[in-house]
Simulated scan of single mutants.
Amino acid sequence: MGWFLQVKKGMSWKEQAIASFGAPPPPLMAFTTVLLMLVYLATHSDYKEMMEKRKTGFRFSLLLLPLLPIVVLNLVTLLHCLLRYNFGAHHYHHAASDGDTGSASGLVLVLLLLFVLVHYQSSFHSSWFRFI
């Protein structure tokens, strides 16, 4: 019959454990706060320095990015010439006229790249050489 009736007994062990917890003493809280602030300040300056170095490296890699297609095209051309030479393919040389010495699209791309680099020169100088 005791199963159907709920009898209010004392506090359970969970309630007693929660009631026994209190706030830590104020000197311990102050010490922990000061310790956490010192750790934060020590790591924050290193973090900021590391991020500045990464930003500079990223900007430099963006500056060198236009060279990547040129290097890739030269490597592909070199590989193509080596494979053709090794496998004995016939070399077909066409006679170029005096006026047809290069590609106009290549010249346009180089000039466009030059204009973009000149346009953004001041921003690169102000961000990279601000300590000079």
Rank of each mutant, 00 (worst) to 15 (best):
M1Q: 07
F4Q: 08
Q6S: 07
V7C: 08
K8L: 08
G10Y: 05
E15A: 08
E15P: 01
A17H: 04
I18E: 13
I18G: 00
P27N: 14
P27Y: 14
L28Y: 11
M29S: 04
A30M: 08
A30N: 05
A30P: 00
F31M: 15
F31P: 11
T32I: 09
T32L: 06
T33W: 00
L36H: 02
L36D: 11
M37S: 06
V39N: 12
V39M: 10
Y40R: 06
T43S: 04
T43A: 14
H44M: 14
S45D: 06
K48S: 04
M50F: 08
M50S: 05
M51F: 02
M51V: 04
M51S: 04
E52R: 13
R54D: 09
K55Q: 00
F60L: 12
S61D: 09
L63F: 06
L64F: 06
P66V: 06
P66W: 07
P66K: 03
I70M: 07
L73N: 05
L73A: 10
N74Y: 11
T77R: 15
L79V: 04
H80K: 00
R84Y: 12
F87G: 03
F87R: 15
F87S: 11
A89K: 12
H90K: 11
H90R: 13
D98T: 11
D98Y: 13
G99Y: 08
D100R: 09
S103V: 07
S103F: 14
A104L: 04
S105I: 14
S105H: 14
L107W: 11
V108A: 07
L109C: 07
V116A: 02
Y120L: 04
Q121Y: 13
Q121E: 11
S123D: 12
S123T: 07
F124R: 01
F124T: 02
F124E: 01
S126V: 06
